[in-house]
């Protein structure tokens, strides 16, 4: 039933591309990539109970990994994507080793500090990264089964985004129902008891940080390939706050929450930015209202009331 539900969601997203008008078609492609980012964030916040305020560095590590290797060294898409994901894994590993030395609220502060250092580094080394202005990648093409597809084509964009999102979603579904995932949830619920049961909690936490960083980095790689732009904005603090908000709003610790949260919030910001320049006030208001009135999020609320079986 659970797997069926997730497959149905993916199938529904696949079917939507044939009925949506152009604007929403493009929006949804972007939302699916960002939702994959939120799915990565949720592994850490929702299933391991660690709140990070620095995920932008994993997203941006993927982004710069793929973008810089194409820009400076002329890598092909496959090699550049591997470089991007590898960059995110290395970043997450290093960040994990440092931050997990600390306990409690220090984790969040240190992730934010490190992410900000990463952001400042993208500005400081602007001869390589082009800093704030960023750079635009040339038109990219991928070959599947001997045919070439341009990534600038909207329906190619949509389907690449769909595949990446579906892989991330199903992978986390598998992860959280696997023995490793159960240990992570145990860590979230009661760290000391898990340690008493003989689990090496530090090692499991590190694995969670790396998996979360990997998925976030993969989302960053995909975003770069589909939208052909790399810039330091994506390493900034806002892009660390976004996945937190998407995950919380949709429901932390639910597999489908990140998609729901990203969907709602991206449209809310789109509407608000048509009304005022200070549209980020929507982000602030959503954070405060969610935590005051719906701390379990949308999917979390549905699970508590009607569907206890939701993973």
């Amino acid at each position: 039933m659970t797997l069926g539900l997730h497959l149905a969601v993916v199938a529904a997203l696949a079917a939507l591309q044939f009925v949506l008008p152009a604007f929403h078609h493009g929006m949804l492609a972007r939302i699916m990539v960002l939702a994959a980012y939120a799915v990565g964030y949720n592994v850490l916040l929702g299933y391991t109970g660690l709140m990070s305020l620095g995920h932008a560095m994993f997203f941006a590590a993927g982004m710069y990994g793929v973008g810089l290797t194409i820009q400076h060294w002329g890598f092909g898409i496959a090699a550049a994507s591997v470089a991007g994901v590898a960059g995110a894994i290395v970043t997450a590993g290093a960040v994990g080793v440092v931050t997990l030395r600390t306990a409690g609220p220090a984790f969040l502060i240190v992730t934010m500090m490190l992410a900000q250092a990463f952001y400042l580094a993208t500005l400081y080394f602007n001869t390589v990264t082009f800093g704030d202005q960023g750079f635009i990648l040339p038109a990219l093409e991928i070959g599947i089964g001997g045919r070439m597809f341009s990534l600038a084509d909207p329906s190619v964009k949509y389907n690449v985004a769909l595949v990446v999102f579906a892989v991330c979603l199903l992978a986390t579904l598998w992860l959280v129902r696997s023995p490793v995932g159960r240990v992570l949830v145990a860590l979230r619920e009661n760290d000391e008891r898990t340690r008493l049961l003989g689990y090496h909690t530090g090692r499991y936490r590190l694995v969670a940080v790396i998996v979360s960083g990997l998925i976030s980095g993969l989302a960053g790689v995909t975003y770069t390939l589909l939208f052909s732009y790399v810039g330091s904005t994506f390493a900034g603090v806002l892009y660390s706050i976004y996945p937190l908000l998407w995950t919380l709003l949709g429901g932390a610790g639910t597999t489908l929450g990140p998609l729901v949260g990203t969907l709602l919030m991206t449209y809310a910001i789109d509407v608000a930015s048509g009304i005022t320049d200070a549209y980020l006030i929507v982000v602030g208001a959503a954070l405060v209202l969610t935590i005051l009135w719906a701390p379990a999020g949308v999917v979390g609320g549905i699970r508590a009331r009607w569907a206890r079986w939701l993973p």
């Binding site: 609220p105 937190l244 200070a278 006030i281 602030g284 208001a285 405060v288 701390p295």
Partner: peptide, 30 residues
């Protein structure tokens, strides 16, 4: 208005103060 109703629960407070940060910043921008 915000912190007391959520009982100063550490993670909720962090989320709420991030929200507060954006509200204050954007009101000043306006």
């Amino acid at each position: 208005l915000v912190l007391r109703p959520i009982g100063y629960e550490p993670e909720s407070t962090i989320v709420a103060t991030i929200g507060l940060l954006y509200i204050l910043e954007q009101v000043v921008l306006m």
